[in-house]
Amino acid sequence: MSDKKTLVEAVNTALDHAMADDKDVVLLGEDIGANGGVFRATQDLKSKYGLKRVMDTPLAETLIAGMTVGMAAQGLKPVAEIQFMGFIFACMEQLVTHAARMRNRTRGRLSCPMVLRAPFGGGIHAPEHHSESTEALLAHIPGLRVVIPSSPVRAYGLLRSAIDSPDPVIFLEPKRIYRVQKQTLPETGSRLPLDTCFTLREGSDVTLVTWGACVRECQEACNTLAEQGVSVELIDVATIKPLDMETILASTRKTGRCVIVHEAARSFGVGAEIAARIFEDLFFELKAPVKRVAGYDITMPYYRMEEHYIPDHKRIVIAIHDCLTEP
């Protein structure tokens, strides 16, 4: 593949290649067939693979989740799309009670190799229930993997690995960066490891931890700080459950400082878990308290205010300066 692709095109390509490689991979969701999905992530796949492998469903998320669990338990590898993360709550009964417990309940006789895809996060001027970032709810459930790509290359490689996984995977796609960046994808079939953080930038003064769309704002902050002589190590968490704390701890041990950035509400978030683990393991090695830059503890506002909700590079730069100047 020589042409460059956006993140949403990388998702489409990963689905295409997975379906070509394995006849057990099937897609289902609302408007994913003829329309190619609300963001066109499944465009042209119905015409290529037919109705039996690319299935339009009713507007019923509970049904989608239940069908996906049933298919996975019986040997298929379903990839379901929930149009927006704000509609995923209707799936929670099936995810918590069945998908996450399948192997434990059957003492290993059955597994649940399913992927549930959902665009998430704000930044596209969407209405209510279309801009949620509630990944912490899903990460709290034992038995579920939660994966969040931040670039086209990682979207392709992580989705291929998610489809291969014998465990149920929630694959959250940051929609405000669906089309902001193009990258040349790796060779067909290349996978990236799950449960692993990616170090995007080496540094020595402070560790900056983030995931999803916030990687872009963090990269901006790194560039601004580099001009000021501050060396930032940037980590993309990528899989927030299971969490690769070894990479985060090693980096924080090296720099002595850590700032965590996420779009989701501040309280009880994944950032709080990462901060707690750092304090537990590195308390006497820290040069300053861990800082968090996050969304606010309110419902994601409508489009006129969402720019004030989503962390920007200025807030990140301020937090890093605070972290550097504290004794």
Rank of each mutant, 00 (worst) to 15 (best):
L51W: 02
E30A: 07
V25W: 12
S2R: 00
K46I: 12
L27W: 03
L28Q: 04
V26T: 12
L45C: 03
T42E: 07
H17E: 15
A41E: 14
A10T: 06
Y49K: 03
T13W: 08
K5W: 04
A10S: 08
A34N: 11
Q43V: 12
L7C: 09
L7D: 05
S2C: 01
K5N: 09
L15K: 12
D31K: 05
G36T: 03
E30L: 13
R40L: 01
K5G: 07
K23E: 15
K5H: 14
R40F: 01
S47M: 10
K48M: 08
G50T: 02
M19G: 06
D24S: 15
A20G: 03
T42N: 10
G50P: 02
F39H: 00
D31Y: 00
D24R: 15
V38A: 11
N12H: 03
K5T: 01
L27M: 10
F39I: 01
E9S: 02
L51Y: 01
K52W: 02
D21P: 06
N12C: 14
D44W: 00
V25C: 10
A14M: 14
A14K: 10
E30C: 02
G36E: 14
K4L: 14
A20N: 07
G33E: 11
M19R: 09
D31P: 08
L28A: 00
G37Y: 04
V8G: 02
F39K: 00
V11T: 15
S2W: 00
A10P: 01
A14G: 15
M19E: 09
D16S: 11
K23V: 12
D21W: 04
D16W: 05
K23G: 05
D24V: 06
V26A: 00
V38D: 08
L51H: 07
G29D: 11
E30P: 05
L45S: 08
D21M: 08
L51R: 10
L28P: 09
K52N: 09
K5Y: 15
T13G: 01
D31G: 00
V38Q: 03
A14P: 13
R40S: 06
A20D: 13
G36F: 10
A10V: 09
L7P: 12
N12T: 07
D3P: 02
G29W: 09
R40A: 04
L7E: 02
A34S: 12
A18R: 05
K4H: 07
A20Q: 13
G37C: 02
D24Y: 02
D24I: 04
V26G: 11
A20R: 06
N35S: 12
T13P: 03
G37Q: 04
L28H: 04
A41Q: 12
A14S: 14
V25R: 14
L45I: 04
E30K: 15
K52F: 09
N12E: 07
T6M: 07
K23C: 08
V8A: 10
K23Q: 15
L15F: 07
N35Y: 15
D16Q: 14
K4V: 11
D31C: 03
G37V: 03
L45F: 07
D3F: 04
L28M: 11
K48T: 06
N35F: 15
G29K: 12
